[in-house]
């Protein structure tokens, strides 16, 4: 994907809010990701400079935590839980069904960045396994068919 020009000025209020707070780099990254959908390199450089952490360390932190994406993500995010309860209740079949339908590989996006499929470990609703999250909306007791149907209903 080509480099997108992003407005690093949008980071200013976030950096201001956390200025002088010890160990605030993780919440800053979280807020920055909320802003851009991922963590573009330009934003990382700005955060490193303003919060006085070396760029190497900032990347070390961002790559450690699963929550942070250094690549852009699709317009629609489908997360399938493969926590233990969901796993024994058939989560792998959900993954295969969505992968086949959208022609992508779990953990990635389709070439047009319309969809991103993620595997997550436990959303804490194991009683309703298997669980899937479509654009933040939780669905319990899903089947391959019901999930694919929901995904196809997305614009």
């Amino acid at each position: 994907m080509d480099k997108v020009n992003i407005d690093v000025g949008l980071l200013e209020p976030i950096l201001l809010e956390f200025r002088d707070q010890k160990g605030a780099v993780i919440p800053i990254l979280q807020r920055a990701q909320d802003l851009y959908g991922y963590l573009p390199e330009e934003a990382m450089i700005e955060i490193a400079e303003k919060s006085r952490i070396s760029i190497s360390q900032l990347y070390g932190i961002a790559t450690f935590y699963a929550q942070f994406n250094l690549e852009p993500r699709g317009r629609h995010i489908i997360s399938i839980c493969d926590g233990t309860a969901c796993h024994v209740r058939g989560a792998p079949k959900l993954v295969t069904a969505v992968e086949d339908k959208l022609n992508l590989v779990a953990g990635g996006s389709d070439p047009d960045y319309n969809y991103t499929l993620e595997i997550v470990y436990c959303l804490g609703s194991c009683g309703l396994a298997p669980i899937a999250l479509v654009n933040g909306q939780v669905y319990g007791n899903t089947t391959p068919d019901s999930l694919v149907e929901k995904v196809m209903d997305l614009d």
Binding site: M44, I45, S54, I55, S56, Q57, Y59, T63
Partner: peptide
Amino acid sequence: GVEAISVFYRGFSAYIGFGADSSMDDSP
């Protein structure tokens, strides 16, 4: 005191990285 080197990623995928996951001369 330069902090140009950090561990990137984790587990078996972890490696020593520089800067914005680039090269040594593109780092501090």
